[in-house]
Computed example of a mutant assay.
Amino acid sequence: MSELEELVGFLDNSRPEVRSTAAEIVSGLTASPDGIEKLKSLQRPLVTKLFRSVGLGGDASRKCLVALVNLSQDPSLADLMLELNVVNRVMELVREGSSPHVDLLTSVLANVTISEGGSRQLLQIGQGNMEGLHMAVLLKKFVVGGITLSPGESDPYEHVASVLTNVTRLKEGRQLLLQPGRGLLAALVSQLQSWNALRRLGASGAIKNCIMSAEDDGTLDAVLDDKSLLPHMLRPINGQEPLEKEDTVRECMAEAVLMLAGTERGRDALWEAGAPEALRKGYEDEAHAGVCVAMERTAEIFLSHSTIDSGMSAPVVGASSAARQEHETGAARQAQVQIEEEKE
Score class of each variant (00 low, 15 high):
Glu215Phe: 01
Lys171Arg: 12
Gly173Trp: 02
Val160Cys: 02
Ala187Gln: 15
Val316Ser: 04
Val108Ala: 07
Leu104Asp: 05
Arg250Ser: 07
Ile308Val: 09
His101Asn: 12
Ser190Cys: 11
Val8Glu: 00
Ser119Phe: 04
His159Val: 02
Arg19Cys: 00
Ala299Lys: 00
His288Pro: 01
Ala206Ile: 04
Leu176Arg: 00
Val143Ile: 15
Pro242Val: 15
Ser213Ile: 00
Glu6Cys: 03
Asn13Glu: 09
Glu251Trp: 07
Ser14Leu: 10
Ser27Asn: 08
Gly183Asp: 10
Ile339Cys: 03
Leu65Trp: 04
Ala78Tyr: 01
Ala161Glu: 02
Gly239Phe: 12
Leu65Arg: 01
Val293Trp: 05
Asp79Leu: 09
Leu105Gly: 04
Gly290Gln: 11
Leu220Pro: 03
Leu177Asp: 03
Gly202Tyr: 01
Leu46Pro: 02
Ser27Ile: 01
Gln338Ile: 03
Ser27Gly: 03
Asn238Ala: 12
Glu244Ala: 06
Asp309Arg: 11
Met81Gln: 07
Gly266Trp: 03
Gly318Glu: 10
Leu11Val: 06
Ala67Lys: 03
Leu11Ile: 05
Gly274Asn: 12
Ala67Val: 07
Thr113His: 08
Glu286Lys: 06
Ala78Cys: 06
Ala60Asn: 08
Glu296Trp: 13
Ala214Asp: 02
Thr298Met: 08
Ile147Ser: 12
His101Tyr: 12
Ala187Arg: 11
Leu77Met: 11
Arg44Cys: 03
Thr329Ala: 05
Tyr157Asp: 05
Ala203Asp: 11
Ala31Met: 10
Pro180Gly: 04
Met81Arg: 00
Leu93Asp: 03
Val143Cys: 09
Asp103Gly: 10
Glu255Thr: 07
Ser53Tyr: 00
Ala78Trp: 01
Pro231Trp: 11
Gly9Thr: 06
Leu68Cys: 09
Gly57Glu: 12
Asp221Thr: 15
Leu270Met: 08
Thr329Met: 04
Met91Ile: 14
Gly97Tyr: 07
Leu192Met: 10
Gly181Gln: 06
Ile114Asp: 03
Phe51Val: 03
Asn238Gln: 14
Thr248Asn: 11
Gln336Gly: 01
Gly274Met: 10
Gly97Val: 10
Gln179Tyr: 01
Ala261Arg: 02
Glu241Thr: 11
Gly205Met: 04
Pro236Trp: 09
Leu93Trp: 06
Phe142Gln: 05
Ser162Gln: 09
Arg333Thr: 01
Glu172Tyr: 01
Val86Thr: 07
Lys171Met: 08
Leu270Phe: 04
Glu244Lys: 07
Ser32Asp: 13
Glu344Ser: 10
Glu264Ile: 14
Ala322Pro: 00
Cys210Pro: 00
Gln191Leu: 13
Ser320Leu: 02
Phe10Lys: 14
Thr165Gly: 13
Glu3Lys: 13
Arg62Ala: 09
Glu5Met: 07
Asn70Thr: 04
Gln193Thr: 13
Leu105Pro: 06
Met130Ala: 15
Val337Gly: 07
Ser98Met: 06
Glu344Ala: 09
Leu109Val: 14
Thr113Gln: 11
Asn88Ser: 14
Arg324Ile: 13
Leu65Cys: 07
Ala269Tyr: 02
Glu116Pro: 00
Ser27Cys: 10
Ile36Phe: 02
Glu241Ala: 15
Ser99Ile: 07
Thr165Ala: 07
Ser190Pro: 00
Ala289Lys: 13
Leu201Thr: 12
Ala322Ile: 08
Leu77Glu: 00
Glu344Arg: 10
Met81Tyr: 02
